[in-house]
Design a protein around this nucleic acid. Structure first.
Lengths: 207, 207
DNA sequence: TATTACATGTAAGGGGTTACATGATTTA
DNA sequence: TAAATCATGTAACCCCTTACATGTAATA
């Protein structure tokens, strides 16, 4: 039930479901994702539970906004969650699963292509977060050691992204090096076999 | 629909649902988790889809086993998945979300305790995987550069775990250092304020 | 005039968890 | 004899996604 608590956390300032969706997309997309169709009913449920209360507010354009704020009971629930042990979920890594079974394709060049694509995606994310940290460092004279407590905690989460993404890219590079070394060795083995006339090179397979 | 494809991948050898559960728990727990109550209906659905076929087989103890094997259509579906781009899902990191909001507790000592617990859990996992690699290196003379292709791909996934977990522990250590530096600075600030008689030290708060 | 942004929702369905039901065989 | 392991499944429920429904106001 992490979404419940994340909404409580975000509602330190009053906000509508629409506002919260924007916060998910702009500020915590590297931590948690949520769709509007999930946010709206969840807010309603949290209000029934008395962790939130809401009021109607006018909007400049579009229908009336429903603005939520946290109750004392909600804040207690939030604190209980924050004081509970680190909530590490089970691993579910689809791209790693693809790699695990990729010998099935019997073609190392495909594994190499997989890693090149993966590296592209991850290093794009890494660059985005590096830029973010860079701008923050330039714009905020308190960065990084004299930040207010809320910003300090956010900085720690940002640093997690940097550490993880760097490690991910390094793993891609290490893997690509191993793959290339293997490919070279295969070619050399093919060469030896072809010279001896044991096997035709085009029937050579990785499996 | 990753579970479908993971089951196809595991069924390179024929196996029962019960067997597959054991493989999930013993060999790919760091990649994907699945419960028996999910595995059984999924296998049935994949058989209806003609990606698997099954036969009944006797068991030494307990009821008859239903042993599944992959069909040609199943293998084609598996290959399509393996050749598709790296399937990177959206982030959903509950422990990072806890940290993001933890300034709410207004007590850096609690953030420090959080990181100590997190570090314990992650470094235990890291040690487990390091031991795994160590035993493999000792037992298998082909390790790491002359492994058969299937083992080579599995090694790459194992290396991912090592890179990720090391980065995670390093981030914990970096964060703990930052937290301790902040705590020291707060103490010093308290001392200055107390000497000047501005505020009583027990009412000093992080927020 | 068409698109985008604002704003709130419902419906259907897939993915996953926990709990329950059943029963045989081996081991402590 | 009790517990663990083998073995297959169903039911209820939660979490989340995609698609649909509705309508206003500003902008291109």
């Amino acid at each position: 039930m992490s979404l419940d608590h994340i909404l409580l956390g975000l509602l330190r300032q009053p906000a509508s479901g629409y506002d919260l969706k924007a916060i998910f997309d702009q500020h915590i997309h590297y931590i948690w994702a949520a769709e509007l169709s999930q946010i709206y009913p969840t807010l309603q449920r949290l209000e029934e539970k008395k962790w939130l209360r809401s009021r109607s507010a006018d909007s400049k354009r579009g229908p009336a906004r429903r603005v939520y704020e946290i109750t004392a009971a909600g804040r207690r629930a939030l604190h209980t969650w924050l004081e509970s042990p680190p909530d590490i979920g089970v691993e579910r890594n689809a791209s790693l699963a693809q790699l695990y079974f990729m010998s099935e394709l019997a073609d190392l060049a495909k594994t190499e292509r997989f890693f090149l694509r993966l590296r592209d995606q991850i290093s794009a994310r890494l660059q985005a977060i590096e830029r973010l940290e860079h701008y923050w460092a330039e714009a905020d004279p308190c960065f990084p050691d004299r930040l207010p407590s809320a910003d300090f905690h956010i900085l720690l989460t940002l640093r997690k992204g940097l550490h993880s993404l760097k490690a991910h890219v390094q793993w891609c590079d290490e893997s690509l090096a191993r793959i290339r070394a293997r490919t070279e060795r295969e070619k050399a083995a093919d060469g030896r076999r072809t010279r001896k006339g044991i096997e035709k090179p085009e029937s050579r397979s990785e499996k």
